[in-house]
Design a protein around this nucleic acid. Structure first.
Lengths: 230, 230
DNA sequence: CCGTGTGAAATATTTCACAGCC
DNA sequence: GGCTGTGAAATATTTCACACGG
């Protein structure tokens, strides 16, 4: 479960829109969760709401950002300057949430030295060999792996050896890391496959009533659905 | 939960490496899950293993692909031809799993008409106005939103109106969709924030033993950690 | 009144542990 | 003997429903 960041983003948007107070019901709706779940989540942070009124938007946003560690800057190293690496560098959401890209690395000679990013936050692609130096000089806390699957484990090992303990992996591979290192992964094909599964389920239930068809798929659709859902 | 796609990918890799049989223990390790969980997940599909032996790699891979609906091709429309759109078009993992990009759309005049993709699977950026036509002509089942947050809800509405019922959203916004439409979202900033949270927790526990410091953060770290974990 | 905060109940998921089959 | 498949137990998460404070 990772809903705090969503709450935070929605609160930031509300604040920008000039809203000063929200009820759990309103905020929950905007975040796509139930109000009971939202209140339970927030209750873990403390009692920041006012009964009969709701939550102060800016105050709650601040409390969540403190909780998430967004009040201090985190250095991010991105390994892989392909299309995905480019997309990450261009992504506006990082800087605004306290993430600073302290390095962008790639193994391919053609892209090394390339200058990316907006004029104010320019970044140069450096050779993969500089990884250790970039991590220690830049004080990077988080490593992002945007390389081909083949290179991912090696890059991961080097990031860990250099002291990085939080890794975001876009390569379609299961990384093995020592105890204490946190890995999160984003796999585009996996997301599409989950959607395909639901499409298929819809197609299947469209021919419900055909007994022969039902016979050839002798599993429990309900529990399988539960098994694959988020 | 969405582990079937991972099992499938690892099985495909094993098959390619010439492995013909795996035990739940081995496969689980390669997938980064416990063997009990793996067996429980697989038991929902049927009894495809052999006691005392394990699973036939190719057979199990096929059964999972059937389950996921990977045995038939799914059309994918990508809206947004920025860096992320480019990355998605370039991603090899789609075609190999039965996903065909039937259209790539963008609102920006500069990129319309641009040709992307490898020589064999070329794709041209078409104007956003063609969305409805591309969806119906291409028989698209899945829509991918890779636009700025601002445009996402409008694009989503048009995709749904055109008949798309499965959406993968990369824009940092909560989409509202009618009943029966499945939305999955990938938010890069959210992933980084979750990692930042863990970094912060580590930093906090580093100054454990300082009572004053503990006093100023009067929440239950354990349950919060549980609340944010995947 | 209204809406938060929260115990208690209902669900869901994960883990255990072992019977059963190859 | 080894490994799957699975009930039963242990955890975790979500939902309910309402007491309590502003």
């Amino acid at each position: 479960m990772a809903r705090l960041p969503v709450y935070h983003r929605v609160l930031a948007q509300l604040a920008e829109a000039g809203v000063s107070t929200v009820s759990s019901e309103e905020l929950a709706q905007a975040c796509g969760v139930s109000s009971a779940k939202l209140r339970k989540d927030l209750s873990h942070l403390g009692s920041y709401g006012t009964r009969g009124v709701g939550y102060d938007v800016r105050f709650l946003a601040y409390q969540i950002s403190r909780e998430l560690g967004l009040t201090q800057p985190w250095g991010v190293v991105i390994v892989g300057a392909g299309n995905l690496g480019h997309a990450l560098v261009a992504y506006r959401g990082f800087a605004s949430r306290g993430f600073a890209i302290v390095g962008l690395l790639d193994a391919h000679p053609d892209v090394i030295g390339q200058r990316l990013g907006s004029p104010d936050t320019q970044i140069v692609v450096r050779p993969l060999a500089d990884l250790e130096e970039v991590v220690s000089a830049g004080g990077a806390h988080i490593g992002v792996i945007a390389t081909p699957a083949q290179a991912a484990q090696d890059v991961c090992d080097r990031l860990v050896a250099a002291g990085v303990r939080s890794i975001l992996n876009f390569a379609p591979t299961v990384l093995s890391v020592p105890e204490g290192v946190e890995v999160r992964k984003v796999d585009l094909a996996v997301e599409l496959q989950i959607l395909a599964f639901h499409e298929q389920r819809r197609a299947d239930s469209a021919d419900a009533g055909d007994p022969a068809e039902t016979q050839t798929r002798p599993f429990d659709q309900k529990s399988l659905g539960e098994a694959i859902n988020a």
